[in-house]
C-alpha cells in the first residue's frame, strides 16, 4: 500500500479535487483521477514531507465546526471594529503563547486557521522555545484570545496525537 500511496490522504484529496473539477463520477474520470493521484503522490514523495497521522474523523469534523463558528463570530467582531471607525479605535497588540505541538502539519493547520480568522494574525513561531507570537486586532480581553489558541492546540493535539 505504502509504495503505491506514499501519502494516502493526499491521494484521496487529489482524486476528490479532480472529480470536483470535472464534475462527474464517470469511470473514465475516476481512472484518470486515480492515475493522477498516484503519480502526484510519488512526486510529493520527492519533497520529503513530514508524515502525520490524523486520527478520529469525528474530532476533525468537530474541530471544523468550532473553527467555522469562530470565523463567523470574529467576522462580525472585526466588521464592528471597522464600522465603529475612529469613534472607538481598536486596541491592537502582540501576544505570545507557548505551544506544545510537535507535528509540523498540525502547526501548519493552526497557522492557516489563525490567519484565516479575522482578528488574529500569525506572525512568528520560535522552534527552540516553541512559542508563538501573534497579533490580535482588539485586545479587549487577552485571556479570551489565549484561551482560543489553547483550545485549538488541545483539539489539534487530540487529532494528530
Amino acid at each position: 500500500m505504502r509504495t503505491w500511496f506514499p501519502y494516502p490522504l493526499l491521494s484521496v484529496g487529489l482524486l476528490l479535487v479532480w472529480l470536483l473539477l470535472n464534475q462527474s463520477v464517470a469511470p473514465g474520470t475516476i481512472i484518470m483521477g486515480t492515475l493522477l493521484a498516484i503519480g502526484l503522490g510519488w512526486v510529493t514523495l520527492k519533497l520529503g514531507l513530514v508524515h502525520s497521522h490524523p486520527r478520529r474523523i469525528l474530532l476533525i469534523v468537530r474541530f471544523g465546526f468550532t473553527v467555522a463558528l469562530d470565523v463567523i463570530r470574529s467576522n462580525i467582531a472585526v466588521i464592528a471594529v471597522i464600522l465603529r471607525g475612529q469613534r472607538r479605535p481598536p486596541n491592537p497588540g502582540f501576544l505570545t503563547i507557548d505551544l506544545d505541538l510537535d507535528d509540523e502539519n498540525a502547526l501548519a493547520l493552526l497557522a492557516c486557521v489563525m490567519t484565516a480568522t479575522p482578528g488574529t494574525a500569525w506572525l512568528e513561531y520560535d522552534r527552540h522555545r516553541k512559542s508563538l507570537l501573534f497579533h490580535v486586532l482588539d485586545m479587549e480581553n487577552e485571556d479570551v484570545w489565549l484561551d482560543t489558541v489553547k483550545r485549538y492546540e488541545t483539539a489539534l493535539k487530540e487529532i494528530f496525537g
Binding site: V71, I72, N75, V78, I79, V81, I82, G85, Q86, P89, P90, P92, F94, T115, A116, T117, P118, G119, T120, A121, L123, H135, L137
Partner: peptide
C-alpha cells in the same frame, strides 16, 4: 474589509482586514 484597509492605521492592523473578504 477594503474600507478597513484604509481606516486602520498600522500595518499589523491592516493584516486583519483582507481576511474578512477571504473568509466571510
Amino acid at each position: 474589509g477594503s474600507v478597513g484597509l484604509i481606516r486602520f492605521t498600522s500595518f499589523y492592523e491592516r493584516l486583519h482586514a483582507p481576511t474578512l473578504a477571504t473568509s466571510g
